[in-house]
Structures are given as structure tokens and as C-alpha cells.
Design a binder for these strands. Structure first.
Length: 569
RNA sequence: GCGCCUAUAGCUCAAUUGGAUAGAGCAACGGACUUCUAAUCCGUAGGUUGCAGGUUCGACUCCUGCUAGGCGUGCCA
């Protein structure tokens, strides 16, 4: 598709230049030629609104311009183009010759799992940082959504030629983990029978810490009571971080997400980089002292308030290690860095960008996206709130457990990933547990998987009937004459550009929709036309090639999303 | 108060970044299994794209002002 588009692009450009040279068209310069979607077959295979765009410059009616451009195309010289129409307000609709369709099938057959890849991002290194949940509790559902999106984005970027990695930033330093230590301390002492204790304000109430405290008490007894409070809390903090991080890793692995790099905030703080960052900020005049603290001039970057970077007690606020961490990313040589943040970090985006700017990194080097919140919706459609602090929330593991009860472990992961990926990043996602569990069979993910399974089933049946696929060279693809076959191949040809668009926009949901559309053409085709037809062997072989291609694209697409492609259902 | 996000069919969401008649899935209604898997298909119905202006050949998309909801908002990350 991309090569054919390039070819058509070239032909149109030459035609416009020829029209200008001949004096038929008077325009200062030829803009880039855009392509518009062709929603119906009548609009051809490739369409462009270029004539509409030139109307103002050329001071001519769009349809007239389209006619002039088309008049300068010699159809005989371009066998790939079967027919050119001018339609609507002045759209140029191009119908391609059938051998283009055959070339598409040829390409898919040759490339197999590589179909959809390109080298657009060759030589560029991208880091995607996502999840990065505090090591203070089990991963919640928003983290699950971020995990699915980040994981898929990395797949997409690698597919279009980037070298992309998954990175998790562990916030294992600072106030939050301090309160984790304090909370575990309370639970531990409670487990040993101490009474009148309460989790302090801002601490973690969750049941998981009660269990953890109990486990420590059971296995190690009261040895920690001999330590001073400060030392004991610090010990529990470190034990807690290690324990919870391990749980988080397990959850992510179960969800099919494997990070390439785990970074530690503690390590960053101890690396000397924060001091260096502060020095640079100070030298650049970004800092000043007030009220016993050190402030960063966010207002110099257009923000309405300055921010404290060093507290009056001498500790850094999160801005310093965050800036140092991004400096670290830059020093590691990434051409682009993508941060996927949770919904409660919206205000942090501009701060982060300002800090990075103050460190002299290019404006477009850092991309920040918010993965919006996930609302759990119950049977009545009522939204339930999630608060980690209050300890009432559904974890990613709970979600998969619950789905697995009905559809099994593998499909549970598939369904959860699909749900998380089906919406654009910054829309709030309503996750209807009841629907996902009780109406599992109506879930859209099965629609796509079922299409794949049906393809597999055809080959199984074919084998039994002695109708195994033949090599494409020995098949007469001209036998694919049905309009639906034409439509199917057009959709297959779109796959690489769907992947490219999705990756460049950092929007994984586009691939989901693409696959759903592909399945939406395949199922009706399957219903109306028999592939295996012993009465017409030639047609059967041609259709088997088509089905192989559909199966291949479905599988490649599902693999990008981390969703399985079952051979039977 | 200020900043960011969101508002599209009864519900949940798309719309290739300004293009042709705004599309899917649920839910509703009516049909199709002696034929490669009915987790499927075919059909019907459903809209002033929150409101009011503006920009232009053309607006769900961009600009301004409203309205409603969510998140955030100087020593948490």
C-alpha cells in the first residue's frame, strides 16, 4: 500500500507540475499531496482532496482543478491505475488495477510475521516509561491499563523500526515509602499483640500490609522490637519495598508485560545527579531561597506558581530526582522519551517539561501522555471509587482472577488487555466487570479471535479434503472476483499504514479498531462465500491464499497487542 | 480562583489529525444453522456532534465565550 501510495503521489505531483508548466494552472508552489480515506468502493482505492486544497491559490473551482490535473495524467503510461474519477466537491478518486491486489497478497505471503514492519524509525532509540507505580501496594487497574498501553506502544515502535524499550521507575525513596515503613511497623506490632495502634494519617490501610506484618511476626518473631523506632521503620520500609515490588513484577508478568529496565529513584538520589541538577539550575538562575526552602522559578516558564525543590528540612521534593532521572535518560542517548503518567499527575506534565527545558533538552524530546482513569462499573452501571490509601480497590490481579473464573486464564489476560487498549489514552474508561464476566462470549476480543480461529479451521478442513494451499506462484489470483474479496484485500493492504499511524500517534487503540474492522469484513465474507469448493479447485486455491493472508494479518495485529490468536475456540 | 482533560445514537466509544452521506459494539425489534465453527451473519430503528458565535470551498476536529463533569493546584510522587 505504501509503495503504491508513493507511486500515485509521484504521478499526481508530476501531473500538477505539468499542468503548471502548460499554463493551465497558476499556483506558487505545489503542496504536499494528502490522501483521504476511501470509505466506499465507489471512491476507489486511493483518493485525494488536493484539488480542494489548491482552489484558493489557483482561484478556480475545485472540480475544474481536478479535471486539469487528471487531464495531465497519461493513463496508458501507468498500468497500475485502472481508472480515475472526479467526484463530490472535487475529489480525485483513483481505482487501481487488479494486479495491485495480487501484489498485496504476494507481499503478505513473502513477509509473513514481518508484514506491517517498516524502517521509518531506523536508528532512533525510544524509551517508554510506564506504570512506575509506587512500591506501596498491589498494582491497581489504572496501572494495568498503562501496562497494556505502554507494552503495546513499545511493540508498535519496534515494528516501525525504532529501537524501543520498556522502563519502570521505582519510587523507592521519599515520603511515600517512609509511610509504607511506618504502616508495616504498625501492622507488625499489632500482629505481636500490641494494642491501641493506628495507621497514621497518610499511611496505607490495605489488608495486604496486615498480612505482611503478620508474616514477619510469624517467621521472625519479635526480634525487630529491639531496634529503635527509626531503625525499625527503615528496615520494614526496605523489606516492604522488596516484597511489594516482587508482587508487582509477578502481576505484570502474568499480564504479559516484561520490562527491559527497572530504574530506582533511590539509586538516582544517591548517584550525585541531583546535586549536579541543582547546581545547573542555580547557575542558570532558576532557583531562589524563600521561607527556608529553595524554589524553582516555574513562572519563568509560563506557569502561574513557583515550586519548592528543596524543602526547609533539606530534603529534595520529587522535582529534583525527577529532573535528575530525566537527565539520566537523556545521557543514555534516547532520541525520544515517552512518559505515560497516571491521571493524578496532570499538573506534573508542564512542570516536567519545564524542568527538562531548563536542563537544555530539546522541546520535543520528552512526550508525556496521561493514561486516564478506569472506572469500575457495577451491574447497575454505578461507578465505584478506588483509593489506595483507604485500601478499598480492585487490583489488576483481582480483575484477572475474576475474569479467569469465567473464561480461563489466557482469555482473562486477553480480555483485560483488549478492554484497556480499545479506548484512546485520554478518555476515561468504564470497565464494566459484570459485562466482561457474564457476557464474556459477546466480548469484542472474541470477535477478532474467532475470525482467526475460523481461518485455521478452514485449513484443517482443507487438509482433510485434500485441499491444502498451493504456493502462491501456482495460484491464479484472478479468480478472486467477489467485491468482498476486493474489500478484504484493500483492508489487508491498509495494515502497515494503520500500524505506522498508531505508533506515531502513540495511540494503541487504532490497531484494535483496525483489527475489529478487518474481522468485520471477514465474518460476512465467510458466511456468504465458501472457501473450500471441490467443484472449483482453482477458485479454492485462490481463496486459500486470501485466507492465509487474513489469518496472517490478524495474528500479526493480535501479537502487537499482546493478545493470543487461538487456532480454535 | 487558576490550569489540564472530557462532552458525539438509549449505553460505551470511533472518526486516518480540516475532507465526501458522522461510523462500530452493546441494548431493542425481525429473520438465517442438512453446507469450511451460529463466539457468526442479514435486516430494521436510533443524531441540531453540550450551548452560542467565529475562521473557509468545507468544522466532531481550529479560535472566542458560556454550561456540565473529572483530575490537579508552593515544601506527597
Amino acid at each position: 500500500m505504501d509503495t503504491i501510495k508513493a507511486e500515485v503521489h509521484d504521478i499526481l505531483k508530476k501531473a500538477i507540475h505539468a499542468a503548471v508548466a502548460a499554463g493551465d494552472l497558476s499556483i506558487a508552489e505545489v503542496p504536499d499531496i494528502p490522501f483521504s480515506p476511501t470509505k466506499t468502493p465507489e471512491h476507489g482505492d486511493v483518493a485525494t482532496p488536493i484539488a480542494l486544497g489548491l482552489a484558493k491559490q489557483a482561484r478556480m473551482a475545485p472540480r475544474k482543478i481536478a479535471e486539469i490535473i487528471v487531464a495531465h495524467i497519461n493513463l496508458d503510461a501507468h498500468p497500475t491505475i485502472r481508472q480515475i474519477d472526479i467526484a463530490g466537491a472535487g475529489f480525485i478518486n483513483i481505482h487501481l488495477a487488479d494486479n495491485w491486489l495480487h501484489d498485496t497478497l504476494q507481499t503478505i505471503t513473502e513477509m509473513q510475521s514481518a508484514y506491517g514492519t517498516c524502517d521509518k524509525g531506523a536508528g532512533k532509540h525510544v524509551q517508554i516509561e510506564f506504570v512506575s507505580a509506587n512500591p506501596t501496594g498491589p498494582l491497581n487497574i489504572v496501572s494495568g491499563r498503562a501496562a497494556a498501553v505502554g507494552d503495546t506502544l513499545v511493540n508498535l515502535l519496534n515494528t516501525i523500526g525504532y529501537k524501543a524499550i520498556r522502563e519502570f521507575y521505582v519510587n523507592d525513596a521519599g515520603g511515600q515509602v517512609q509511610r509504607l515503613g511506618e504502616s508495616i511497623d504498625i501492622r507488625y506490632r499489632q500482629a505481636l499483640g500490641e494494642e491501641g495502634l493506628e495507621i497514621p494519617e497518610g499511611g496505607y490501610q490495605g489488608e495486604y500490609l496486615r498480612e505482611f506484618g503478620q508474616t514477619i511476626a510469624d517467621t521472625e518473631g519479635n526480634v525487630y522490637l529491639q531496634l529503635g523506632t527509626k531503625e525499625r521503620v527503615a528496615t520494614f520500609r526496605d523489606k516492604g519495598i522488596a516484597h511489594i515490588l516482587e508482587q508487582q513484577k509477578k502481576s505484570l508478568e502474568r499480564f504479559g508485560v516484561n520490562f527491559d529496565v527497572w530504574s530506582s529513584e533511590k539509586a538516582i538520589r544517591e548517584s550525585g545527579k541531583p546535586e549536579e541538577i541543582v547546581r545547573v539550575f542555580r547557575e542558570n538562575g532558576c532557583l531562589y531561597e524563600a521561607e527556608g526552602a529553595t524554589w524553582f522559578r516555574m513562572t519563568d516558564f509560563g506557569d502561574d506558581k513557583d515550586c519548592v525543590v528543596i524543602k526547609s528540612d533539606g530534603e529534595y521534593t520529587y522535582f529534583v530526582p525527577d529532573a535528575a532521572y530525566h537527565r539520566d535518560k537523556f545521557d543514555r542517548g534516547f532520541t525520544t522519551v515517552v512518559d505515560l503518567l497516571g491521571p493524578d499527575h496532570q499538573g506534573h506534565i508542564t512542570h516536567l517539561k519545564n524542568l527538562v527545558k531548563a536542563l537544555g533538552m530539546p522541546d520535543d524530546w520528552l512526550e508525556v501522555f496521561i493514561i486516564q482513569q478506569v472506572n469500575l462499573v457495577d451491574a447497575e452501571g454505578k461507578r465505584s471509587d478506588m483509593s489506595k490509601r483507604r485500601g478499598q480497590f480492585l487490583t489488576l490481579d483481582d480483575l484477572i482472577d475474576e475474569l479467569a473464573e469465567t473464561v480461563g486464564e489466557q482469555f482473562a489476560v486477553d480480555v483485560a488487555r483488549y478492554f484497556f487498549l480499545m479506548r484512546s489514552n485520554n478518555t476515561h474508561l468504564d470497565f464494566n466487570m459484570e459485562l466482561a464476566v457474564t457476557h464474556a462470549s459477546e466480548n469484542p476480543v472474541f470477535y477478532i479471535q474467532y475470525a482467526h480461529a475460523r481461518c485455521c479451521s478452514i485449513f484443517e478442513q482443507g487438509d482433510e479434503q485434500g485441499l491444502a494451499p498451493k504456493p502462491i506462484e501456482e495460484v491464479s489470483l484472478k479468480r478472486l472476483t467477489e467485491p468482498m474479496e476486493h474489500e478484504l484485500i484493500r483492508k489487508l493492504a491498509e495494515f502497515p499504514s494503520a500500524v505506522l499511524l498508531s505508533a506515531e500517534a502513540r495511540e494503541a487503540h487504532r490497531v484494535v479498531h483496525y483489527l475489529h474492522e478487518l474481522a468485520g469484513i471477514f465474518h460476512p465474507y465467510y458466511n456468504q462465500h465458501r472457501v473450500l469448493d471441490p467443484a472449483d479447485i482453482e477458485k479454492t486455491y485462490a481463496r486459500l491464499i486470501l485466507i492465509q493472508s487474513v489469518q496472517r494479518v490478524l495474528k500479526n495485529g493480535l501479537t502487537l497487542l499482546g493478545i493470543s490468536a487461538p487456532t480454535s475456540m
